[in-house]
């Protein structure tokens, strides 16, 4: 009975092996999570516990002081803090949505159509992953200023739409999960390419774009906008919170609180999407 609660039924598994594997996974999970628990518990430590010797792992007298300090610092900021939050939400949502749609469309073309230039284009996308971003920053800035996009969100959102990662990822998913026979039968029924893409392809690669949403959202959420955004009212949340941290060790407690606050939204996006990725298995029948 308990066995059923933990493992899905597979005829090729032994109980002993399963238990060993579970132990291994739990060990990995502990290694992953313990430092984070330490970090989160730091955010609830009063100042005298943060600098105590020997250092304590868990908090003894939890306090919300660090979060209250953070709120006070936020309230005192030049621009209302909600503006930074709004900016980051705007960039993350628009950037992610556009990237998922454009990258999936392009991936569909590359995965399911053979046309002149397809392979060349795809290898360019892969190669681009290997070129250090630090040196393309200057050429990118020149291009943005030529376009007149410096100090606007266009400079952040539009390049995000064409990140290499999403196209590469979606193409692998479409290669593996969409069978040509499926497309052929829909074409015979007279579906246009556009309808085919939205009604047949996208529903079948659901685990793919749910995963891509997690990844794209997370990278945009941490966007500081430093290179292109100069107006204070356009700056992002990570930028503003980093400013608070710039005061150094005096804000060690607030710093821990900042880490917790910044993490909440990406974690939520992750939990919502990932649980749906796993659900697709139940509804399996990917045919």
């Amino acid at each position: 009975m308990i066995r059923r609660l933990i493992w899905t039924h597979k005829p090729t598994r032994s109980l002993g092996g399963n238990l060993l594997v579970l132990l291994f996974i739990l060990a990995g999970a502990c290694f992953s999570v313990l430092p984070l628990i330490y970090a989160v518990s730091n955010a609830f430590k009063p100042l005298d516990e943060l600098f105590i010797w020997p250092p304590r792992f868990f908090v003894r007298n939890p306090t919300l002081d660090n979060f209250i300090d953070l709120l006070v610092l936020m309230a005192g900021s030049w621009i209302p803090f909600s503006r930074y939050v709004l900016n980051t939400v705007l960039i993350s949502v628009l950037g992610t949505a556009g990237h998922v749609i454009l990258a999936s469309m392009a991936a569909y073309a590359l995965s399911k159509h053979k046309f002149p230039g397809a392979n060349l284009f795809f290898s360019m996308v892969i190669l681009s992953l290997m070129f250090a971003r630090q040196v393309t920053a200057i050429p990118n800035y020149l291009i943005m200023s030529r376009l007149g996009w410096v100090d606007t969100y266009l400079a952040i959102i539009l390049p995000a739409w064409a990140m290499s990662l999403g196209l590469f990822l979606m193409k692998q998913f479409m290669d593996a999960m969409i069978h040509d026979s499926l497309l052929e039968s829909a074409r015979i029924e007279g579906a246009s390419e556009w309808v085919l893409f939205w009604r047949v392809v996208m529903p079948n690669v659901r685990p793919g774009w749910l995963t891509l949403i997690i990844l794209a959202f997370q990278s945009l959420w941490n966007e500081t906008g430093g290179q292109f955004i100069y107006s204070e009212q356009l700056k992002t949340l990570p930028y503003a919170l980093n400013q608070i941290l710039a005061a150094g060790i005096a804000r060690a407690g607030v710093g821990a609180a900042v880490g917790v606050v910044l993490m909440i939204v990406p974690i939520t996006v992750f939990v919502v999407n990932q649980s749906r990725v796993i659900e697709t298995m139940g509804a399996a029948g990917i045919k």
Binding site: I25, P35, L36, P238, I278
Partner: peptide, 28 residues
């Protein structure tokens, strides 16, 4: 973790993935 039941799998995935979603928390 693919052998595990969905609910347990979801929890373990979160635990294993958490460090890479934690932003600057690696500074701990």
């Amino acid at each position: 973790i693919n052998d595990l039941q969905p609910r347990i799998r979801a929890v373990l995935t979160l635990m294993l993935y958490a460090p890479s979603i934690s932003g600057s928390m690696f500074m701990i």
